[in-house]
Simulated scan of single mutants.
Amino acid sequence: MSTTVRPAAGAKEVPFAPALPDDMSVEMGSGFLTPGGLVVHTGWSRPLDEPAHVRRQHRAFEGSGSQQWTISTPDGHRAARFPYLYRPDAERAAARIVGALPGGRWPADADTAALLPLALEASEGPALLPLTHKGKPSWGSGYGGDSARFWMPDKRADYERMIAAHGRIPTSCQACARTVREQKRLGWGPRTSHWPKWEVTGHRGAYVQAHCYCGICMGIYLKIGAVKAVTDEAGNTVVGSAAVYPWSESPEITRGVERGDRPFAWFAHFLADAGCVIVDERTGTSLWPENVRHDDALFCETGETGTWDASGVDTSLEEPTP
């Protein structure tokens, strides 16, 4: 880490590296050990001129704009739902997180498996948002750099606890508020309750933007399709899927149909062809979603199920029970 960043009062620079999978070559870097026992640090990524498995720390700079600062345990596990734009903000958030732990700090000999879930739960409330608007926590405008990013829970039970504690709909996103007003005037029904959302791609050990100005809110990523029995190249009967963007044009299906009525034409087509209709918004190939755990997906591209450790890494893949 660059020495242009000076430790805050009470924080000291220490050697640090994130806990990544064993097949990664993680170069040792540094972070700032806070008085409460957690470490704030910049991220690691693949250098452009290095092999795909190499990860190197981003340099940190003082007074040169924002950059991502993450809160982790001393042994390298991410300990906060939000990354922060400035180190002082990350250090203040780390102090609030450890304040909710037994003893009010992260012990040097901490049992990470036992304490990490408590730290993550303490970090996920709206009060820990990295952005503010008029002095209050905010999800940001949604236009880009000032949009909050959020690490989705790695397990369904953690997600359900978060929903029970904080609700489904963020109330301080400026972009969503504007979108709702404008689209309701136009007669649309925008869907702004997409944070937090379990099905979001990359929820396992990766952060996502909690809001986008038009994509998810306005249903741009919706697909409409169906599944039915088909014959593969070997002559076997398998389950196949087909899907399109609801407003797609087709010479056979939507000829002479106004654009606003095309979803209804596709609905009628798939219902007649397969006897069912599925509407989905997850990233995937046709109706097979990507990065979705088998036990939480309507369909899965791998057909595999497994367990997940504290870092979100699948540790015990096994074939699903027939």
Rank of each mutant, 00 (worst) to 15 (best):
T171P: 00
S241C: 13
C276A: 11
P15T: 05
V40I: 07
T321C: 14
P47E: 04
A206W: 09
G275Q: 06
V238S: 03
L186T: 03
T315Q: 11
F32E: 00
W188E: 15
T70L: 15
R255W: 05
E249Y: 13
D295G: 06
H211K: 08
A114C: 10
W106T: 01
L48E: 15
A272L: 08
A60G: 11
S250P: 10
F270Y: 06
A157Q: 11
P137F: 05
I163T: 03
D232P: 06
G167E: 06
G205T: 04
W69N: 03
V279M: 09
T231W: 07
A265D: 01
E318P: 03
T73P: 02
V180F: 11
T307G: 11
H41S: 10
A210W: 00
I169P: 03
V292L: 14
W247V: 09
G202D: 06
E13M: 15
A265L: 02
L131N: 01
E62G: 10
V244C: 01
G63W: 04
A114D: 08
S45E: 09
H166I: 01
T307C: 10
M24D: 13
G31L: 01
W69V: 06
G29R: 00
G219P: 00
L85S: 10
T4M: 08
R185D: 14
R181G: 14
A90Q: 01
V40C: 09
A100F: 05
Y207A: 07
E304Q: 14
A52Y: 05
T231L: 05
C173Y: 02
G43N: 06
T321Q: 14
P246N: 02
R161W: 04
S138D: 08
S172Q: 07
E319F: 12
R161K: 11
Q209M: 13
T132R: 11
A19I: 07
F267Q: 05
G99M: 06
E62D: 15
E304M: 15
W288L: 08
G76A: 03
A226M: 03
R6H: 12
A100P: 05
E281I: 07
I253H: 00
R204H: 10
S30K: 05
S66M: 12
K197R: 14
F264V: 14
P137N: 02
K197T: 14
V39D: 01
Q174N: 09
V208C: 03
A242T: 08
M162D: 07
W139K: 01
A110T: 05
D89W: 08
R78L: 13
S45L: 11
P263L: 06
G256M: 03
I253N: 02
R185F: 09
F16I: 01
E124A: 14
R78E: 12
C276D: 12
G31F: 03
K155N: 13
G31D: 04
M28L: 15
G10Q: 04
S138M: 08
F32P: 00
A93Y: 02
S241G: 13
D154P: 09
S123P: 05
W308I: 15
G145L: 15
F16H: 00
T283H: 12
R161Y: 02
V257Q: 04
P322G: 10
G284V: 03
G125P: 01
G140W: 02
P170T: 01
Y245R: 11
H294D: 11
P21R: 06
S172N: 08
A19W: 03
C217L: 13
H53M: 13
T201A: 15
